[in-house]
């Protein structure tokens, strides 16, 4: 009976479900960008990486299902998306470290390049149906289908959840983390320590891009589970802004991603119970939040706490 209509409780279930489902791309892209920015570089191109990742994961999963079966193929797809991210990351890292090259401009070019590659190669994968990643049904205890569905969690989400504290620990307590931070905060000091700045930045950008690619596989192989040219609808860019919101702290990236994932679900969930006043506003919430964060945090007079000292400066 409870399944018939959950009413206003249903809104919370829907937002909870939306948060768990929709935050995967935000989480991976923001963690990737966090790593990149900690090393002092900005990679705006992660929107393109997200799309390329989504496309390659879907394509590989679809093409390999006959050979490997639909259980293993999506996992190879996830790996392919990471690999695609790694390649795009390499291009960005190489270009943006050339003399007198601006990493914002390269990033914008990479958005167009990444999405162009994805659209071009993805044309023939719009229609077919690729095998999807399995989900963990944590809602088995409930008899309410809505709750069961909301708690169908992707292993990717759990992986992302685990990645955030690991990254936090990595930055705070490991030697390598210190090296990345040193390169991002004070390249001169890092140089004096005998660290190769280009090498560290190259690795940071590539690994960050790998994460973003995996985030893309979450879009195409988990939720919403298709490949289409509008699949990301700007989530990659929002996730980049989200890193500023999270003050370059991986744990806060996690919370911010959950928040943005939930904000996406708000509009449809409210309309489903008949609240459609201010529908455009609800639908615009993720974008509005991004804008507000940018306005609040981008003051020319003060630097942000937590911002890597050499972020975006020319090497």
């Amino acid at each position: 009976m409870a399944s018939e209509a959950l009413g206003s409780v249903g809104v919370f279930v829907a937002i909870l479900g939306g948060t768990l489902r929709g935050s995967v791309p935000f989480l991976f892209v923001s963690l990737g960008e966090c790593l990149t920015e900690k090393s002092g570089k900005i990679n705006l191109g992660l929107e393109g990486t997200l799309l390329t990742g989504a496309m390659s994961a879907y394509a590989v999963s679809f093409l390999l299902q006959g050979k490997l079966g639909s259980g293993l193929a999506p996992w190879i797809g996830v790996m392919a998306s990471g690999l695609a991210g790694l390649c795009l990351g390499f291009i960005h890292a190489w270009l943006s470290q050339q003399r007198r090259v601006n990493d914002i401009a390269v990033g914008i070019a990479m958005i167009i390049f990444g999405s162009g590659v994805a659209f071009f190669l993805g044309k023939s994968f719009i229609q077919p149906k690729a095998p999807q990643l399995p989900t963990l049904d944590l809602g088995f205890w409930s008899t309410v289908p809505a709750v069961q569905s909301a708690l169908k969690i992707s292993p990717l989400f759990l992986f992302g959840m685990a990645l955030a504290p690991v990254m936090h620990w990595f930055f705070r307590s490991t030697r390598w983390g210190l090296i990345v931070r040193a390169v991002g905060d004070s390249p001169d000091a890092a140089l004096a320590m005998g660290i190769s700045i280009p090498k560290v930045r190259m690795i940071s950008i590539m690994v960050g891009s790998l994460f973003a690619g995996i985030g893309g596989s979450g879009l195409s192989l988990y939720y919403p589970g298709i490949w289409s040219e509008n699949i990301s609808s700007g989530q990659g860019l929002m996730a980049v802004a989200l890193v500023i919101f999270a003050r370059w702290n991986p744990i806060q990236c996690l919370w911010a991603s959950l928040f943005f994932g939930g904000a996406q679900a708000l509009g449809p969930a409210l309309q489903a119970v008949g609240i459609d006043q201010g529908r455009y506003l609800f639908n615009a919430i993720p974008y509005l939040l991004t804008l507000v964060i940018m306005v609040l945090t981008c003051s020319p007079r003060k630097t942000l706490t937590g911002a890597p000292g050499a972020l975006g400066e020319k090497s």
Binding site: A14, R21, G225, R279
Partner: peptide, 22 residues
């Protein structure tokens, strides 16, 4: 109403919300 002709995430979210509401 999703607001645009192609909004895969919102469309999926809308379908899920409706299923939740019976």
């Amino acid at each position: 109403i999703t607001g645009n002709w192609s909004e895969p995430v919102k469309e999926a979210e809308a379908a899920n919300s409706m299923a939740d509401q019976g």
